[in-house]
Amino acid sequence: MNINNNQLWVKVIKKVRAWARLNSIWAVHFNSGSCNGCDIEILATLTPRYDVERFGIKLEGSPRHADILIVTGPVTRQARERLLRTYEQMPEPKFVVSVGSCSVSGGVFHGCYNVGGSVDEVIPVDVFIPGCPPRPEAIIDGIIQLLTHLKDGNPRPARKEQIIERGVA
């Protein structure tokens, strides 16, 4: 069937999907060799003080049901394949949030023999949240930035290379 993007019903369905997605983001958490610091802060954002569930964000166990992949830690050699597999299992559209300095650049573990480096060397990342570990507020801010981009109709936030090209980071 030929779908014309300008047809009204296509537009309406797109809007409804975007609306639904923005209000019920399901996230899967993957630890690719982190020290637990970021992981407990992610968990803290789910618990009553920070409570990201008010944005409709829910931590989901299975990557097959998730919209966002939250990755923490430098990518270790053993976890690399598993990270790829988890990413591949997620349905489109999928977004990746990399939490913590290690997952952004390797952090203190940069150059260790079992560490590959940053997460974006393995899978495309949409939002980077630096910090060791980032505060729960920073994690919420990162996710909200992602949601804002989606709301504005942008398919994805700017990638790391683009940010570097622009000379911002």
Partner: peptide, 28 residues
């Protein structure tokens, strides 16, 4: 899966740098 090779890394960092490296063995 979380093996990063910290003991080896410690040998190439100085005494003070290691303090911060070891803090990041476990965030808890």
């Amino acid at each position: 899966y979380a093996h990063r090779g910290i003991e080896k890394a410690a040998e190439s960092r100085n005494w003070i740098q290691n303090l911060y490296l070891f803090e990041r063995i476990c965030g808890i």
